[in-house]
């Protein structure tokens, strides 16, 4: 079972193996000789196929922030236990999630209100633009998780919808 890293929404499979000098990175059909020496304070030297690259890094849980060759990229290690656990069927559709961080401008529904697919639930504002959060399916508004004026992060659950009879 390979390791998974996510970068800009795409999952990359890889495996690292030991070799006499350092490691080998197996990436698809590519095999690269790699190694890393820590220099302390979020600095290190990556060796990749013989070339040395100074690396600045910061690790925040499973998120790895990297600065190499003047460029910054953010990769996320996907723990195999959670990566392979399916979200319960339909559960994703029962919640309206925030497509980006923002602030609630106004809520258009009340808990207990019946909604159909596409009903406007909430107006959010992010990056100076308003967008409407719509119901992903038919159901009843169970809970509104943020009040008007409150801030939320990316992927936060904004509104929970239950299916009638469930």
């Amino acid at each position: 079972m390979n390791h998974l890293f996510e970068h800009e929404g795409v999952d990359y499979q890889l495996w690292l193996s030991r070799c006499q000098q350092g490691y080998r990175l197996h990436l698809g059909n590519e095999v690269l000789a790699v190694d890393f020496s820590h220099q302390g304070d979020g600095r290190g030297l990556l060796t990749i196929t013989g070339a040395s690259e100074p690396v600045r890094f910061a690790i925040d849980g499973d998120i790895i922030h990297l600065h190499i060759r003047g460029r910054t990229r953010i990769l996320r290690y996907r723990d195999p236990l959670s990566a392979h656990a399916l979200v319960k069927k339909d559960a994703g559709h029962l919640m309206a999630r925030a497509p980006m961080p923002g602030v609630v401008v106004k809520t258009s529904v009340m808990p207990g209100e019946a909604v159909s697919t596409g009903t406007a639930l909430m107006v959010i504002e992010s990056m100076k633009l308003e967008s409407v959060i719509r119901s992903p399916q038919e159901g009843v508004v169970d809970r509104i998780h943020f009040n008007e004026g409150e801030c939320f992060e990316h992927d936060a659950v904004l509104v929970t919808i239950t299916q009638e009879g469930h």
Binding site: M1, P80, L81, A83, H84, A85, L86
Partner: peptide, 14 residues
């Protein structure tokens, strides 16, 4: 309890 075979394998590896 595993959600899928791959999930089960991930648990077993763990």
């Amino acid at each position: 309890l595993a959600d899928s075979e791959m999930h089960a394998i991930a648990i077993a590896r763990d």
